[in-house]
Design a protein around this nucleic acid. Structure first.
Lengths: 220, 220
DNA sequence: GCAATATTCAATGATTCACTTGAATAAAAC
DNA sequence: GTTTTATTCAAGTGAATCATTGAATATTGC
């Protein structure tokens, strides 16, 4: 007959991967890292935390095995350890969306009213891409676009969008996307473009989900 | 520009589903509940904990929304809130298997040496089932078999196996399965059958994975 | 109504966690 | 070799978590 203590220890270890994600700041870190590797300093800015605190969260993730790090000169870059970690984050997000009460309200508080925001699904965008009657706009930071983007997309980081509206081809409809369903960049882009009289919609989720669905991507 | 506090609150809420699973005892509970609904008393016995402690963990899961409960007379039955929760548990387990260091050793400590244990995959079992040259043996408790099992499987709970060896048809090879990859029941069954000279192997994972893959199942 | 059973509640102490602050490293630039 | 920059370490504080204990509650059967 098997030992109770050994069973407990095994399930404790299985729960380690959940513990790693069981914190809002670490969830934010994983969400950003799902776009590609980043330095500690950049990550601290992304999650609005001190360097020391961010470093400690990253080391917790490192100890859990879900992320890895490499040194390049004076900087240390962190990245997800594998595809499975992205799967875990997305599944966790989906479970929270379906079951955590109050989440819709919190999303609305952060993202604002999305009811007037036109969104399209991956499948629709895919067929529109084949028809060629759409401009796909990646509004994430340059580095994330460089690490991987929807094939055919043009890059205009959200902070440059106002001054680079001229870069968007005339006539075609724009589909903006960013990091995922809870990323504000694409929302802001669609609102700005609509105000300027440009027809725009947002992709319902972001690049990691597109990539995970094995749809056409490009790099650099 | 979006508010930092609102973003933090949103990601805190997303992390709630991870927090719910971020404990070895709750992971065990979800693993058992993935087989079907159970009463508090039964669950406490499964995870070798006091009633009070088990009840508190179940209420934590309830608050997270990942499980639901219903009263029947004096008993309260808990069950997973949806398929997504099973997905979350399996994805988490996979992430831990790939990335949590020391997990293999802990599994070996609990399960013993599996190297001499023949295992077969879902796909292989599926085609062997079509050929009809295999006896599929469900060694979970009766209630779990009743809640759902591999179509064509016979039920002999592991604790009854020794006295019911006669129920196993002669000649055919046996494939035993139970709750999942870290469940000991099927291991014990295969070892016992092998000692008795009956050719036996274990399915590499359990009923929830079979069901999730939309392979043929039956109820009652 | 009263006793029995299943579950939950409430209070406790030990442990871990999240964040802050200020000091310590380690590589690169001068 | 000293300074600069990016990251980590170490110590401290308040809050949350976990298992334990014993009491409280709700439903059933009498």
């Amino acid at each position: 007959m098997a030992d109770h203590a050994a069973k407990a220890a095994l399930y404790d270890a299985l729960a380690e991967s959940a513990k790693a994600l069981a914190n809002g700041r670490r969830a934010e870190l994983v969400d950003v890292l799902a776009q590609g590797e980043r330095s500690v300093e950049e990550l601290a800015a992304e999650i609005d935390q001190t360097l020391a605190n961010t470093s400690q969260h990253l080391q917790r993730l490192l100890r859990s095995g879900l992320v890895q790090s490499r040194r390049e000169g004076t900087r240390i870059y962190y990245s997800l350890a594998s595809e499975v970690v992205g799967d875990l984050w997305r599944t966790m997000r989906r479970a929270a969306q379906e079951h955590v009460s109050g989440l819709e309200q919190l999303a609305a508080d952060y993202l604002g009213d999305r009811s007037k925001l036109r969104t399209i699904t991956r499948d629709v965008l895919r067929s529109r891409l084949r028809d060629g009657d759409v401009v796909v706009l990646d509004v994430r930071p340059e580095a994330e676009y460089a690490a991987g983007h929807i094939r055919g997309a043009i890059s205009i980081p959200i902070h440059d969008l106002r001054s680079r509206l001229g870069d968007i081809p005339d006539g075609a409809e724009v589909v903006a996307y960013c990091r995922g369903p809870f990323c504000v960049f694409a929302d802001e882009a669609v609102r700005m473009l609509s105000r300027k009289g440009i027809s725009a919609a947002r992709l319902e989720d972001g690049f990691p989900e597109w990539n995970q669905a094995h749809l056409p991507v490009a790099r650099s």
